[in-house]
Design a binder for these strands. Sequence first.
DNA 1: ATACTTTATGTTTTT
DNA 2: CATAAAGTAT
Length: 747
Amino acid sequence: MIGAHPLVEDLNPEQKAAVTIAGGPVMVVAGAGSGKTRVLTHRIAYLIREMGVRPGAVLAITFTNKAAREMRERVGGLLGSTVNDMWVSTFHSACARILRREAHAFGYRSNFSIYDRSDSVRLIRQCLNDLGLDASRRSPRGLLNKISEAKNGLVDYETFLDRTEGPVEVAEVYRLYQQRLLQMSAMDFDDLLMVTVELFGAVPEVLERYQGIFGHVLVDEYQDTNQAQYLLVRDLAKRHRSLFVVGDSDQSIYAFRGADYRNFDRFDEDFPEARRVILNRNYRSTSTILDAANEVISANQRADPKDLWCDQHDGEQIIVHRGSGAVREARFVSNRVRQLLTEGYNPGDMAVFYRTNAQSRAFEEALRRSKAPYQVVGAAAFYQRREVKDVVAYLQVVANPDDGVALRRIINTPRRGIGRTSLGHLERFVSAEEVSLREGLERADEIPGISTRARRGVQQLAEVLASIKAHLESDGVGRATESAIFDTGLAEMATAEGGIEAEGRSDNLAELSRVAYEFDSTLEDDLASLEQLGRFLEGASLVSDPDNLDEGAGAVALMTVHSAKGLEFPVVFVVGMQDGLFPHERSLSDPDQLEEERRLFYVAITRSMERLHLSWDDTRMVGGYPYPQVPSRFLREIPEQLVEHVGGPEHPRSAKGTARGSSAGRHHAPAGGDRSFRRIVRQSGVEVGDRVRHATLGVGRVLTISGHGARASASIFFPGLKAKRELMLSAVEKLDGFGPGAASRSG
DNA sequence: ATACTTTATGTTTTT
DNA sequence: CATAAAGTAT
Ligand SMILES: Nc1ncnc2c1ncn2[C@@H]1O[C@H](COP(=O)(O)OP(=O)(O)OP(=O)(O)O)[C@@H](O)[C@H]1O
C-alpha cells in the first residue's frame, strides 16, 4: 500500500489516469481484455467516494442486465456498502423506466406494453391486411427490419415518406404500425429508445429534469451503441459534460441492428474537450492467443491499430481441429473437455462458441454422452416459447387492456368457440367503428353475425381476465400468473398432446409460475399491483440470452459468439469454423459485413484466457448427403507457428483425449438451486436403472430412455405414485448415491 | 361455423 | 423444424 488510494491500487497507471480524471468527458478506447469494464466500475466508485457524487446521480449503461447486476455488486464491493439508488442498467431498461413516468406527454399510458420481435411482426401483418397489401408479397419481417432501421436512426414516418423515392408502401405500413402502437399503448424495442430521445427533444423540462438527476453518465461497450442511444447520452450529458464511455471499435458486432461505430466520431465532435485514454495492456490472455487475435483483426481495412501487449508467458498453442461430420467435431470437443477436466479444469472454466444457435445440438449431445455438465445459454429463449407467451399475453392484457396484439393472441386460445368468421366480423366492426379490439369485444352483442357460441366465448374470456386481475390485486403477480395458467385452460392445453413434449411445456409453465412468485418476494417497493405486473412483464420482455448464464453452475457454457461478448473463460472452443458458417454465407458478398464477421471472430478468440481451440468440419451432411466444407478464411489469418493442427485425414483418430477416462464421471455436479429460468440441462448422465428425482413426483427409477440431447425423455417408475410416467430427462435430477443421504438434498 | 389436418414457406447474429 | 395460411372434416 503505497499510500495510494485503495480504489486505484489494483489499476495500472493508464487505468488509474482514466479513473481519476477530475471531470469532463472521457473516452477510453482499448482492445480486448485491457480492463475497460474494470475501469468503468472503478470510475463509478471513485465518483461516489472521492468526488462526493450521490449514487442517485449516476447513470451507468451496460450491455446486458446481468452485466448491470454485476457492476452494481462490484461498485458496492469497492465502496464496502450496497448502493441501491444508482441507475445501472441497459439502455432499454433505463428508457423503459423513464418512459413509464414520462411517456404520457406523447399520449402513451404508463402501463404501455413492450413488444418483442414476434409481437411486432404480428402487428405488421395486421397492418398489411388492413392496408389491403399482400402479406406474402412483402415479408412482414423485412418490413419490420426497414422500420427498425429507420427508428434506430430516429427517422419518423413523415421523414421516411419524404425520403422515399419509389413506392410508398413501406412508409404507409410504418405510419399505420406506429399509429397502432400508440393507440394500443405499446412500444417495440426501438420505440423505447426513439421515443425517449424524441421526448427529450420535444419537452425541454423533461430533458432538464433528467439532466439534473443524472449528473454523471457512463457507457460500457460503447462501440455497439446505435444513433438513438448516442443521442440519448449526448442529450443527457451536453450540459454537465460528465460523460465517460469505454469501448473498442474492433469489437463492434451489432451493426446489423443499427450499431454505428461513427458514434466515436460523433463523440469527438460533440465533446471536443474530451480526454482520451488508451489502454494497451491485456490482462486476460496468453501471448499466443493475443498474437493470434491481433493478426486476425489487422486483416480488417477498418481495424483500429493497437499495441496490445501482455506479460504472460506464451502459453499453449492454439489447437485447430479438423473433423468429418458434426458428430465427430462434437466428439473432439467433448473428449477435450474430458481431458481438461482430468488436468484440473472445472467444467465452468470452459465454453463452446458457435456462430448460429442451430449448431448447439451436436455439442449438447456429445457433452451429454461424455457426462460433462453443460448449460446452453439462451437458445430458444424461455419467454418466446409458445406456451409461455400465451400465459404472458393474458397478463399483458390485464396490465394493458388495449394491447391488441396480446388480446388477439388469446382471444381463442385455448379454443373457446371464437373462430375465423367471428373474428372476421369482429375485425370489420372494429375497423368500421374505429374502436379498439377491447371495445369491440365489450360490444360483441352489437355485432351482427356473431354466433351465440362465440358470444359465450367472449363472455368466458372477460371472466377469466377479471379473475386474473382479482388474483393480482389480492395476492400479487405470482398468484395472477398461476391464475393465467390454470383458470384459462392453458395448463390443460399444455398437457394435452404429444406425451413427451407435454411434460416440457408443463415444466415451462411451472417455471414461469415460480419466476413470478419469486418476483413478488423480491419486490421491495410498495407499488400498486398493476404497476408490479408491469414491471414483471417489462423484465420478461427485456431479458437477454447472456442474462441466463450461471457462472456458479459448474457447467460448460454453450452459446453464440454474440452472447459471449464481454465474458472470459480459461478454455474456449470456437466451433464450426467453415467458410459459409463463420464467416456466414450471408455476409460473404458484402465487405463491411465480412469485416463484422471478422470482428466477431476477434471477440470469440479474445474471450479465452489460456486454451483456445478452433474446430472445423470438412463434411457437412445435408439431407443425408455429404457436402464438402472449406475451412474458414479466418483460420488462415492466424500465424502458423501459433497453431497445432489435429484431426483430419492424416490423423484419423482425433488427436487428444480419446483415452477412456472414467475419472470424468466424478465431475458432474448437478446445478441445483437455479434461481432463474435459465435452461440448464442437468447433466445427470442418467442411465437405465438410475434413481432420479422430479420436483413434484418425487423419487423414481428409470425404466427406459429415448431421444437425444435436450429432448431426451425417459420412462420412469415412481413408487410413490405406483405408476410410471414419461418425462423429459431434463425435468429430473439424478440421485448420485444409493443411500438415503442422496435423497435428502433438495433444491 | 369451428376444429382439425395438411401444405407451404422461410431458417444469422438480437435489445 | 417451426409457424402460418389454406383446405377438409365434423
Ligand atoms: N490492473 C489490472 N490488474 C489485474 N487484472 C486486471 C487489471 N485490469 C483488468 N484486469 C483483468 O483483466 C480481465 C479483463 O478485464 P475487463 O473485462 O475489464 O476488460 P475489457 O477491456 O472490458 O474486456 P473486453 O473488451 O474484452 O470485454 C479481467 O479478468 C480483469 O479482472
